[in-house]
């Protein structure tokens, strides 16, 4: 199968994969009772009425994890071609991979020492 056909399959598959979860929702929309009122539509939260806005600023820690993840994920993508070609390469490739992974580890150690990984 050629490349276009492969991705055509994924395209058709994605469309079908969208239809399947949508179908029960549509069926449910047809059969379910629709008697909404203002009190029913309140945010449930923990039973008491919500106080204040929900879409607020959040803990910076989550952002830091996101940044550390980004560093890793981008670098990991570069390791995939290396892994695919690995069987055809010699010791030099191992050295090159080692150096690259060392740089990756360097970032982790830096984040660790800077206490970016602590949950404060």
């Amino acid at each position: 199968m050629n490349l276009i056909n492969e991705w055509a399959f994924i395209g058709v598959f994605a469309a079908v994969a969208w239809i399947f979860p949508t179908l029960p929702l549509v069926v449910s929309w047809v059969f379910r009772p629709k008697r909404a009122n203002a009190i029913k539509l309140q945010t449930y939260e923990c039973g008491v009425e919500t106080v204040g806005d929900t879409w607020v600023q959040f803990k910076v820690q989550y952002y830091l994890y996101g940044l550390v993840f980004l560093v890793f994920d981008v670098e990991l993508v570069f390791l995939f071609p290396w892994a695919v070609a690995y069987n055809r390469l010699d010791f030099f490739a191992f050295g090159a991979g080692l150096l690259f992974v060392f740089l990756l580890t360097d970032a982790l150690i830096y984040a660790w020492r800077k206490k970016a990984l602590e949950w404060l």
Binding site: S28, F31, R32, P33, R35, Q42, T50
Partner: peptide
């Protein structure tokens, strides 16, 4: 689940 009333909160 299909026959349950479905609630989308006001906010």
């Amino acid at each position: 689940l299909i026959t349950k009333e479905d609630i989308t909160p006001a906010g």
